[in-house]
Write a protein that binds this DNA or RNA. Sequence first.
DNA 1: GCTGGTGTTCGATGTTCGTCGAATATAGGA
DNA 2: TCCTATATTCGACGAACATCGAACACCAGC
Lengths: 100, 100
Amino acid sequence: MTQDAYQHPALEDVTLPEVLHALSDPLRLSIVARLREGGERGWGEFDTHLAASTLSHHMKVLRMAGLIRTRREGARCQVALRPEIEGRFPGLLATVIGLT
Amino acid sequence: MTQDAYQHPALEDVTLPEVLHALSDPLRLSIVARLREGGERGWGEFDTHLAASTLSHHMKVLRMAGLIRTRREGARCQVALRPEIEGRFPGLLATVIGLT
DNA sequence: GCTGGTGTTCGATGTTCGTCGAATATAGGA
DNA sequence: TCCTATATTCGACGAACATCGAACACCAGC
């Protein structure tokens, strides 16, 4: 990161089309599905052939859609689902991920 | 139409990201929400300030995502939800539209 | 301090998207 | 038959997107 922390939007500011768009990419959908299994994951666990900058871009899309929370852990990063998203869009993730 | 009938994809060929993308546009989401109230609707009922060609484009996106069925009625067109989409993606529309 | 690993940011590039106007096809009525 | 209404298709346009490599910032060891 350039500065200290990550930008996480308030969930009230997140719109349903925005979330659906974030989930409409196969890679991002698979990332969310993996995170829904629980716990935190490191960047490296999402084994993709993409460039690091591309993965960083997708993580930002998910973060700006209110779906994930990113946390620094020394030099590494850890991501996890934002559980509050269930309160903002009840049942959405369960339904969508269940259809994966 | 140029020829006789409309192209409607087989639901097995429709992917989840494709459906999510179709629903990620506010106008298309509102169209699906209206159609979910039941019955058929004519083009004119979707009162939008957009050009006719733009509405036609969005209808095609929804149709190709397996969400709606278009039927000719003389010079007019009637659209309705494809009820089989419930079998392909159980609970998806109910959840997403319920969050609108 | 320097060095290596990790992730972000910044152009750049090619693709897709949303929108429009114009041209076209088709149906129905005067 | 001609005219109007309706909807699709066809370029065209700018905006947004997915991807990359290069440069940068940060942290941890040596």
